[in-house]
Amino acid sequence: MAITVTSNPDQVTVVTVEGQLIVANRQELKQAIQDALDGGARKFVVDFGPTAYIDSSGLGALVSINKKVREAGGELRLAGLNEDLRSLFELTKLDTLFAISATASEALAGF
């Protein structure tokens, strides 16, 4: 997995997850968001456009991250889920927990 963190002029932190989000690397994503939170960021988009699959630990990490961001008064949006990943969120009822946009630009426009 490769994680890319970028900030745009609207102060939204976009975290792009390439490859897979699984038990072996979920901590990297948690740490990237935590570092941004510690640096004062409060608006986040996690872009799953280049993500092949997410396991249950990855989903659990997103639940945990979402909780931390909300507790800090921030907001987390997800974007770019392909049809298979979207079905995983529906299966686990997490589609109703997260704000999910088709693309990262749509998610950015939502802030």
Binding site: D55, S56, S57, L59, G60, A61, V63, S64, L88, L91, T92, K93, L94, T96, L97
Partner: peptide, 23 residues
């Protein structure tokens, strides 16, 4: 099993077996 929406939204673990059974 995680059944209710509330349980699903709160749990940080416990989805693996459920996902395998459904996929």
């Amino acid at each position: 099993e995680l059944v209710s929406e509330e349980e699903c939204h709160a749990a940080e673990r416990g989805r693996g077996l459920f996902m395998m059974r459904h996929l």
